[in-house]
Amino acid sequence: MAAVRETCLVVTFASTHDAMAAERSLLEQGVAGRIIPTPVAISSECGLAWKSPVAAREALLAALATLAHDAVVEMEL
């Protein structure tokens, strides 16, 4: 059975530490999403990434303003 794909926002990080700091903060702020393995299509420094639904874009970007991260990529997963 093929996986159902959907467009989402993927946040990449430089280190596992940054990914964990972001996870804690994003969850505390109620931003929808979770940690995932960084998609191979993304050139990333860290093996962990954060995935949010597109609908959470505004809250995600607002929260990321104070969090160390590399990039936010919109992609189909």
Partner: peptide, 18 residues
């Protein structure tokens, strides 16, 4: 294992070390 996977046990390790 810390930083070596995103499954349950590995994420638990990453959170604990963090």
């Amino acid at each position: 294992s810390y930083g070596r996977g995103s499954g349950g046990g590995d994420l638990d390790a990453a959170r604990m070390v963090f």
